[in-house]
């Protein structure tokens, strides 16, 4: 299936000389949730802004739904909904008016039933006549989402959508995102909350210093790059790790009751069998053990440090 977004050789150098994006190649499949991760200043927002038409690219091509974003900007932009990172709202407009305005901007006829559904889905219905200035930060964030959804986009960009949003509301937004995915909407999500990407994404892209470092299926990524940690709860506390166990690079907890061993799941030999044998030989017994997979956050941090 043709990708819904195709980015090819995209670069952006600002007038100051700062290169924000450097030869980006990226394809987003229709209907997927793609999480774009990266530290501050990595180029996430610039990339989104170029695709949406807010920033001019220095070079390269971008197509949305097969439509070039410059030559066929109307068709390309009509497919896109954008929830920007900052809370840009018209303070003195009502929720209903601002959401309806967004729909009009995209050339769609009035559809009060749809606006009502969107506002209800985002728990904004009882605030429909309230001026935006009177809303809390979380509500304003939901208004931004409602505006982006008002013209029924096929592609939705969520740039840090849950920044500053409490846990309950964040989970509510995740539910909305899942419903959108179920309805066939492609979602591109940038976030600082790694657990958000881990929870939601089908694929993960990591951008660092304006370059795509990695694009991978989330499950495969965690399997491929993930390390595991074996934790052993000891029968008796120890003061130090015996010299004979030095090759395993074990970590002893401060209280002396737990030993941790990090191993690579990709390796032919994990070293667990020999470790357990050497522990027995050293007279160290344990009462329990557990293994834990590395999180996406661990993977992300290791990638951007490279």
């Amino acid at each position: 299936m043709a990708p819904v977004i195709s980015v090819s050789g995209l670069s952006k150098t600002y007038a100051s000389g700062f290169t924000s994006l450097n030869n980006i190649h990226l394809e987003i499949a229709r209907g997927e949730i793609f999480a774009l991760l990266g530290p501050n200043g990595a180029g996430k927002t610039t990339l989104i802004s170029i695709i949406c038409g807010i920033v001019n690219a220095s070079s390269g091509q971008v197509a949305v739904g097969g439509h070039d974003i410059n030559a066929d900007y109307r068709a390309a932009r009509a497919l896109i909904g954008l929830v920007p990172q900052e809370l840009h709202t018209d303070s003195f407009e009502s929720v209903w008016a601002t959401v309806s305005f967004s729909r009009g901007l995209f050339g769609k006829p009035k559809n009060p039933a749809l606006i009502e559904k969107i506002l209800k889905d985002l728990s904004l219905w009882d605030k429909k006549d309230a001026k935006i200035i009177t809303l809390s930060g979380g509500m304003k964030r939901r208004v931004m989402i409602a505006k982006a959804l008002s013209h029924e986009p096929q592609v939705l960009f969520l740039d840090e959508p849950t920044a500053g949003v409490d846990v309950e509301l964040r989970k509510g937004m995740w539910d909305v995102v899942r419903e959108l995915k179920a309805a066939g909407v492609t979602i591109i999500l940038t976030t600082h909350y790694i657990e958000e990407a881990e929870e939601m994404a089908d694929r993960v892209g990591v951008i660092n210093k304006g370059e795509i470092v990695l694009v991978e299926d989330k499950a495969k990524l965690m399997q491929k790059l993930g390390r595991k940690r074996l934790s052993l709860h000891l029968q008796q506390r120890i003061d130090a790790i015996p010299e004979a166990l030095a090759p395993y690079h074990l970590t002893l907890s401060e209280d002396g009751w737990r030993l941790a061993y990090d191993y690579d799941t990709k390796g032919d030999r994990t070293g667990i069998t020999s470790l357990l044998g050497d522990l027995r030989a050293a007279g160290i017994r344990f009462v329990d053990l557990e293994t834990k997979q590395s999180s996406l956050e661990d993977i992300f941090v290791s990638l951007v440090r490279q």
Partner: peptide, 14 residues
Amino acid sequence: FIGTIYEILSAPIS
């Protein structure tokens, strides 16, 4: 000034 220009620039409007 308030940043809502993003919506105008990203809309399918000439």
